[in-house]
């Protein structure tokens, strides 16, 4: 699978851009939290695309963002 780049994203409509990003980050999140992956991905897709691209290139920042999202989700559901 070729890397998702800013120029690749720029050629797609906004809704499609989020879809493309979601398809990339979902598998990573699913590895970490299989049951919450859909919701966590939905939350992270609210983040700016440029930051999402950075997170895809930097697994550490994606992981820390995922843990943040899990905490928010659990607080929301409590």
């Amino acid at each position: 699978q070729e890397p998702l780049t800013a120029s690749l994203l720029a050629g797609a409509p906004p809704q499609e851009q989020k879809q493309m990003l979601g398809e990339r980050i979902y598998p990573v999140i699913h590895e970490m939290h299989p049951t919450l992956a859909g919701k966590i991905t939905g939350m992270l897709l609210e983040i700016d695309n440029s930051e999402l691209l950075h997170m895809l290139e930097s697994p550490e920042s994606l992981h820390s963002k995922v843990e943040e999202a899990v905490a928010v989700l659990q607080a929301h559901q409590a």
């Binding site: 906004p14 809704q15 879809q19 979902y26 859909g38 897709l45």
Partner: peptide, 22 residues
């Protein structure tokens, strides 16, 4: 009030509707 439908859930291969209301 609390929004029980938040967050929108993403499913691979399914068009994501999360931005529809923006």
């Amino acid at each position: 009030g609390s929004n029980i439908n938040w967050p929108p859930e993403f499913h691979p291969g399914v068009p994501w509707k999360g931005l529809q209301n923006i």
